[in-house]
Amino acid sequence: MKSYYSSLIITVMLSILSPLSSFGDIFTDDGINIQFFMKKVKKPISDNKLMEGSIVGIGDRVLDKIVFRGIRDWYGEVDLDIKIYKEERTDTLELIMSKHIQSFSFTPKTSTYTLPIYPWIDDIGIYYIEIVDGGKKLIEFKYEIMYSDGEG
Protein backbone atom coordinates (compact mmCIF):
# COMPACT_ATOMS: atom_id res chain seq x y z
CA MET A 1 0.00 0.00 0.00
CA LYS A 2 2.84 2.32 0.94
CA SER A 3 4.61 1.67 -2.33
CA TYR A 4 1.35 2.29 -4.20
CA TYR A 5 1.08 5.73 -2.59
CA SER A 6 4.73 6.38 -3.31
CA SER A 7 4.29 5.56 -6.97
CA LEU A 8 1.07 7.61 -7.05
CA ILE A 9 2.88 10.60 -5.57
CA ILE A 10 5.73 10.15 -8.03
CA THR A 11 3.26 9.92 -10.93
CA VAL A 12 1.43 13.05 -9.77
CA MET A 13 4.70 14.91 -9.32
CA LEU A 14 5.92 13.84 -12.73
CA SER A 15 2.69 14.95 -14.37
CA ILE A 16 3.01 18.30 -12.62
CA LEU A 17 6.63 18.60 -13.59
CA SER A 18 6.26 17.37 -17.15
CA PRO A 19 5.20 20.76 -18.57
CA LEU A 20 8.62 21.98 -17.45
CA SER A 21 10.10 20.02 -20.31
CA SER A 22 8.37 22.36 -22.71
CA PHE A 23 9.91 25.29 -20.87
CA GLY A 24 12.87 24.91 -23.18
CA ASP A 25 10.80 26.73 -25.78
CA ILE A 26 9.15 30.04 -26.33
CA PHE A 27 5.87 30.21 -28.24
CA THR A 28 3.99 32.95 -29.99
CA ASP A 29 0.20 33.10 -29.87
CA ASP A 30 0.17 31.65 -33.40
CA GLY A 31 1.98 28.56 -32.21
CA ILE A 32 5.41 29.45 -33.49
CA ASN A 33 8.15 27.91 -31.45
CA ILE A 34 11.29 30.02 -31.03
CA GLN A 35 14.60 28.45 -30.08
CA PHE A 36 18.11 29.81 -29.64
CA PHE A 37 21.13 27.66 -30.39
CA MET A 38 24.76 28.03 -29.43
CA LYS A 39 27.44 26.90 -31.87
CA LYS A 40 28.22 23.19 -31.84
CA VAL A 41 25.32 22.46 -29.48
CA LYS A 42 22.36 20.50 -30.76
CA LYS A 43 19.97 21.34 -27.95
CA PRO A 44 18.45 24.79 -27.76
CA ILE A 45 19.23 27.09 -24.87
CA SER A 46 16.79 26.36 -22.08
CA ASP A 47 13.96 28.73 -21.51
CA ASN A 48 14.88 28.93 -17.83
CA LYS A 49 18.26 30.30 -18.79
CA LEU A 50 16.74 32.81 -21.19
CA MET A 51 14.20 33.89 -18.61
CA GLU A 52 17.04 34.59 -16.20
CA GLY A 53 17.72 37.46 -18.54
CA SER A 54 21.22 36.78 -19.75
CA ILE A 55 23.39 34.29 -21.55
CA VAL A 56 27.13 34.26 -22.02
CA GLY A 57 29.26 33.33 -24.99
CA ILE A 58 32.92 32.45 -24.60
CA GLY A 59 35.40 31.62 -27.32
CA ASP A 60 33.79 29.26 -29.81
CA ARG A 61 30.71 28.86 -27.64
CA VAL A 62 28.73 31.74 -29.08
CA LEU A 63 25.16 32.15 -30.22
CA ASP A 64 24.76 30.51 -33.58
CA LYS A 65 21.16 30.99 -34.69
CA ILE A 66 17.52 31.60 -33.86
CA VAL A 67 15.12 28.97 -35.17
CA PHE A 68 11.40 29.55 -35.72
CA ARG A 69 9.31 26.42 -36.03
CA GLY A 70 5.63 25.88 -36.72
CA ILE A 71 3.96 23.49 -34.33
CA ARG A 72 0.72 23.19 -36.26
CA ASP A 73 -0.42 23.69 -39.84
CA TRP A 74 -0.77 27.37 -40.27
CA TYR A 75 -0.16 29.89 -42.98
CA GLY A 76 -0.82 33.54 -42.80
CA GLU A 77 0.41 36.82 -41.55
CA VAL A 78 2.60 37.10 -38.55
CA ASP A 79 3.98 40.18 -36.91
CA LEU A 80 7.33 39.24 -35.48
CA ASP A 81 10.08 41.73 -34.85
CA ILE A 82 13.56 40.52 -34.07
CA LYS A 83 15.97 43.19 -32.91
CA ILE A 84 19.53 42.97 -31.70
CA TYR A 85 21.29 45.91 -30.09
CA LYS A 86 24.91 46.36 -29.18
CA GLU A 87 25.96 48.26 -26.10
CA GLU A 88 28.46 50.91 -27.02
CA ARG A 89 31.18 52.21 -24.73
CA THR A 90 29.08 55.27 -24.15
CA ASP A 91 26.36 53.08 -22.55
CA THR A 92 24.09 53.63 -25.50
CA LEU A 93 22.43 50.87 -27.47
CA GLU A 94 22.88 50.69 -31.18
CA LEU A 95 20.56 48.65 -33.38
CA ILE A 96 22.78 46.27 -35.29
CA MET A 97 20.36 43.65 -36.60
CA SER A 98 16.65 43.75 -37.29
CA LYS A 99 14.15 41.59 -39.07
CA HIS A 100 10.41 41.86 -39.44
CA ILE A 101 8.67 38.63 -40.34
CA GLN A 102 5.21 39.35 -41.66
CA SER A 103 4.18 36.23 -43.50
CA PHE A 104 5.28 32.68 -43.36
CA SER A 105 4.02 29.16 -43.72
CA PHE A 106 4.39 27.51 -40.35
CA THR A 107 3.52 23.92 -41.07
CA PRO A 108 5.25 21.00 -39.40
CA LYS A 109 6.83 19.98 -42.68
CA THR A 110 8.00 23.29 -44.04
CA SER A 111 8.11 25.34 -40.97
CA THR A 112 11.69 26.01 -40.10
CA TYR A 113 12.98 29.51 -40.47
CA THR A 114 16.55 30.02 -39.33
CA LEU A 115 18.11 33.38 -38.64
CA PRO A 116 21.89 33.10 -38.46
CA ILE A 117 23.45 35.18 -35.72
CA TYR A 118 26.98 33.99 -36.28
CA PRO A 119 29.19 35.31 -37.92
CA TRP A 120 27.40 38.67 -37.83
CA ILE A 121 27.88 38.68 -34.07
CA ASP A 122 31.07 37.13 -32.77
CA ASP A 123 32.89 40.03 -31.19
CA ILE A 124 33.43 40.55 -27.51
CA GLY A 125 30.77 42.85 -26.16
CA ILE A 126 27.31 43.16 -24.71
CA TYR A 127 24.24 42.66 -26.86
CA TYR A 128 20.53 42.74 -26.20
CA ILE A 129 18.19 40.48 -28.13
CA GLU A 130 14.47 41.07 -28.18
CA ILE A 131 11.58 39.45 -30.00
CA VAL A 132 8.28 41.26 -30.20
CA ASP A 133 5.11 39.47 -31.32
CA GLY A 134 2.36 41.81 -32.46
CA GLY A 135 3.61 44.63 -30.29
CA LYS A 136 3.93 42.37 -27.25
CA LYS A 137 7.45 41.67 -26.05
CA LEU A 138 7.91 37.91 -26.11
CA ILE A 139 11.43 37.76 -24.81
CA GLU A 140 14.36 40.03 -24.11
CA PHE A 141 17.71 39.01 -22.80
CA LYS A 142 21.28 40.17 -22.52
CA TYR A 143 23.91 38.30 -24.49
CA GLU A 144 27.48 38.89 -23.47
CA ILE A 145 30.48 37.60 -25.38
CA MET A 146 33.47 37.40 -23.10
CA TYR A 147 37.13 36.68 -23.48
CA SER A 148 38.04 33.05 -23.72
CA ASP A 149 41.17 31.67 -22.08
CA GLY A 150 44.23 33.03 -23.72
CA GLU A 151 42.48 36.07 -25.11
CA GLY A 152 42.47 39.64 -23.99
Binding site: K86, I96, M97, S98, K99, L115, P116, P119, W120
Partner: peptide, 24 residues
Amino acid sequence: VVLFKDTLTFGYDSRTYSFPLIPW
Protein backbone atom coordinates in the same frame (compact mmCIF):
# COMPACT_ATOMS: atom_id res chain seq x y z
CA VAL B 1 19.64 48.94 -39.94
CA VAL B 2 19.12 45.32 -40.94
CA LEU B 3 22.66 44.10 -40.51
CA PHE B 4 25.78 45.69 -39.11
CA LYS B 5 29.29 44.54 -38.43
CA ASP B 6 32.01 46.92 -37.38
CA THR B 7 35.08 44.88 -36.73
CA LEU B 8 36.23 43.76 -40.12
CA THR B 9 39.96 43.93 -40.52
CA PHE B 10 41.94 43.40 -43.64
CA GLY B 11 45.65 43.44 -43.95
CA TYR B 12 48.32 41.12 -42.63
CA ASP B 13 46.29 37.95 -42.86
CA SER B 14 44.14 39.05 -45.83
CA ARG B 15 41.05 37.74 -44.12
CA THR B 16 37.92 36.62 -45.87
CA TYR B 17 34.52 37.20 -44.35
CA SER B 18 31.42 35.44 -45.58
CA PHE B 19 28.17 36.86 -44.28
CA PRO B 20 24.76 35.34 -44.90
CA LEU B 21 22.19 37.85 -46.13
CA ILE B 22 19.28 35.39 -46.30
CA PRO B 23 16.96 35.40 -44.49
CA TRP B 24 17.84 38.71 -42.86
